[in-house]
């Protein structure tokens, strides 16, 4: 989380003269990023630990 806190101001500096709506848009984008990060933290614990084996084992027969 701390790493991302630092990234956001840098992203703002990279852009040249943002239009007036930009801070609002960026706040919204940051909020969404935070929400996704919260979600990732939440689902990390339930994700298959051996992804390769899990994917390999998911075999279905064709249907309609």
């Amino acid at each position: 989380m701390a790493g991302q806190e630092q990234k956001r101001p840098q992203r703002r500096e990279d852009e040249d003269t943002p239009p007036p709506e930009a801070p609002v848009a960026q706040t919204r984008e940051s909020a969404r990023t935070d929400d996704v990060d919260d979600l990732l933290d939440e689902i990390d614990g339930v994700l298959e630990t051996n992804a390769e084996e899990f994917v390999h084992g998911f075999v279905q027969k064709g249907g309609q």
Partner: peptide, 19 residues
């Protein structure tokens, strides 16, 4: 493969496992 695994687990009906 982690991303492929997430794609599959996305639709798992189990409320604990399904993303």
């Amino acid at each position: 493969p982690r991303l492929s695994a997430i794609d599959i687990q996305w639709s798992d009906l189990d409320p604990a496992r399904g993303l």
